[in-house]
Design a protein around this nucleic acid. Structure first.
Lengths: 125, 125
DNA sequence: CGATCGTAGTACCCAAAGGGAACTAAGAGC
DNA sequence: GCTCTTAGTTCCCTTTGGGTACTACGATCG
């Protein structure tokens, strides 16, 4: 387990620790969904916009740029005719998918226990 | 284990699914930190404010209320002299802690791989 | 030759959330 | 009656989120 030379300052509870920024990036609805959407392989901008139901192009762009800046995804431009941009997970992004997938799965698995979902829980429609 | 009658509509990728709202609640910096801070047992407002370095009382209140509304935490008021309010995890909240703890742990464990942390990685200061 | 299409965004504008500092309430103790 | 503590609330400003419309580009259609 890649024991780094110094672990003392790595604490998500410390506002000045870089961990906090990374947590803020990953603990985000759109980030969690976008990374999950790339788990099956590279996807194009339009495909991501469709998959991430309800996301606006502006927010999707911002989310993808942030993930790219932090090295979680790669952005590949194919200068073909109607322009083609593919987003794919980096090794780091793939690794980050594990805890995020667990979180998404937990939500789906336990949704019936939430008051928000209670209405639809008995809804056989 | 809680096999519900119908799982088909539960999808975090569907904007209209209650899952999305729950994901939005949990996939949030302050929620993830607040629930984690309560893992060791009940804590008071002030203790949480201290632990969640950088949080403003307003945002902490809003976060706690949201978590309370969704049944993840309990708020107990002790009408003692300088007023005493204790926040604690519900069974649901305890369960939600597992994936969130995994996410926090992953961040701390992999922080050196992020460009954001690269500066401080070799920084012995 | 101009109009239209598809893709991946950007620009503009508004609403909501985040965030800080100061203030409130209520009673104990000085 | 002043101060201390605790748990917020209120005000205001900045940041972020979000929707809609628009752009650029060449290909293809009419």
């Amino acid at each position: 387990m890649h024991t780094t030379s110094c672990d003392r300052k790595h604490d998500v509870y410390d506002a000045s620790c870089p961990c906090r920024q990374v947590l803020d990036l990953l603990a985000n609805k759109w980030s969690a969904l976008a990374l999950g959407a790339l788990e099956d392989g590279p996807r194009r901008f339009g495909a991501l916009r469709d998959r991430l139901d309800g996301v606006s192009p502006k927010v999707l762009t911002a989310t993808l740029r942030r993930l790219e800046d932090q090295g979680l995804i790669d952005r590949t431009v194919f200068p073909s005719v109607p322009l083609h941009v593919e987003y794919s997970l980096t090794a780091l992004g793939k690794d980050a998918c594990a805890p995020l997938a667990a979180l998404r799965a937990w939500v789906v698995d336990n949704i019936e226990r939430f008051p928000t979902a209670a209405v639809s829980a008995g809804d056989g429609r």
